[in-house]
Computed example of a mutant assay.
Amino acid sequence: MKRRTFIKKASITSLACALPPIVPVYSNTDYSLDELIGKADIDLYGKGINLREEAYHAFVAMKKAAQAAGVSIQMVSSYRDYFRQESIWERKFLRYTEDDGMQPLDAIDKIVEYSTIPGTSRHHWGTDIDIIDGNVKSSGDVLVPEKFESGGPFERLKLWLDENSEDFGFYLVYTDEPKRPGFKYEPWHYSYAPISIPMLAAYRKINIVKMLLSQDYLGCDYFTTGFLRSYIQDNILGINPELL
């Protein structure tokens, strides 16, 4: 069970609604392997928010500023541990191979259009968020790119984020840059750069291929070294260059 420290009152004052906060420089790079792959017990802040402390404060300030502009930022997903990601992966693998009759390799290719291999998700770090506009009702799956574009229910949220999110340290991860490889465009996925950048740097220092080949979950038997190297280059590193 991971520990959560719920903060009732943010230290950011109401001035954050009018002025962007000073984004702190996060210098700690001493991360364990378990912490980087989502198996560590880390402190998470904010009921229903579940982010590292600095990311939590920045998120609260951004949420307040958006609220003043008539946009209600609602958290859909934030911290996700290894075992939660494993369950998502295995559920999709079974659905594609058993229900849809796909071959395992085709199923894996389908999964990694949007979902990460367990141990490689940025949501393991407590820095990344999936968000929508809570003021707008939308039926069905809310995390659909078209819902954030022109005419979609979350268009206003996306326009506000385009103008303001980076002032609070949050950067879009999977952009709509045509030449960007890896995961498809996710207009809902933002990362708190002052922490996620050094965490990615630490993550790149581990032997990711060796780590992934040592895990055990449905579908992993079909991984090859070549596939994993391409996955690292295209999916893990195929992100907004501002986050590298």
Score class of each variant (00 low, 15 high):
214 S>V: 11
50 N>V: 08
82 Y>L: 04
217 Y>G: 11
80 R>S: 13
176 D>H: 06
203 Y>H: 08
122 R>Y: 04
35 E>N: 11
90 E>V: 15
163 E>H: 06
125 W>N: 01
136 V>R: 13
141 D>V: 15
191 S>C: 05
47 K>C: 03
17 C>F: 09
23 V>F: 07
19 L>P: 03
77 S>N: 12
47 K>F: 10
144 V>N: 04
24 P>M: 04
188 W>E: 01
40 A>D: 01
238 G>P: 03
28 N>C: 12
194 P>S: 02
100 D>Q: 04
173 V>T: 07
27 S>K: 08
141 D>L: 14
112 V>I: 15
31 Y>F: 15
61 A>H: 03
43 D>V: 08
211 M>R: 10
178 P>I: 12
138 S>G: 09
195 I>A: 03
119 G>Q: 01
83 F>S: 14
74 Q>S: 12
172 L>G: 05
235 N>K: 14
43 D>L: 10
120 T>Y: 01
118 P>S: 10
164 N>D: 02
183 F>H: 15
113 E>H: 13
218 L>E: 03
99 D>G: 13
17 C>S: 12
150 S>Y: 12
217 Y>F: 15
184 K>N: 14
15 L>A: 11
234 D>V: 11
207 N>Y: 04
210 K>V: 06
145 P>M: 09
230 S>D: 12
91 R>N: 02
204 R>G: 10
66 A>D: 00
169 G>D: 00
96 Y>F: 15
160 W>L: 13
132 I>K: 02
210 K>H: 11
150 S>T: 12
224 T>S: 13
143 L>N: 02
193 A>C: 04
14 S>P: 02
230 S>Y: 10
2 K>D: 04
177 E>N: 11
116 T>W: 09
237 L>F: 11
65 A>K: 04
40 A>G: 05
195 I>P: 00
83 F>C: 10
158 K>T: 14
68 A>M: 02
131 I>C: 12
64 K>N: 10
48 G>Y: 05
177 E>Y: 09
151 G>N: 05
18 A>E: 02
157 L>N: 04
172 L>N: 04
130 D>C: 14
96 Y>M: 06
213 L>E: 06
26 Y>T: 07
121 S>H: 01
224 T>K: 12
188 W>F: 14
237 L>M: 14
152 G>S: 03
189 H>W: 03
142 V>I: 11
106 D>G: 15
18 A>V: 14
145 P>L: 07
113 E>M: 14
71 V>F: 11
35 E>H: 13
171 Y>M: 03
61 A>K: 01
86 E>W: 09
223 F>E: 00
51 L>N: 01
79 Y>Q: 04
99 D>K: 15
110 K>R: 13
146 E>A: 15
115 S>T: 10
167 D>N: 14
147 K>C: 05
139 S>H: 01
242 E>A: 15
145 P>Y: 02
117 I>H: 06
148 F>R: 03
95 R>Y: 09
142 V>M: 10
68 A>F: 10
234 D>M: 13
193 A>M: 03
94 L>G: 09
226 G>M: 11
98 E>T: 08
124 H>L: 07
129 I>E: 00
4 R>Q: 08
193 A>Y: 02
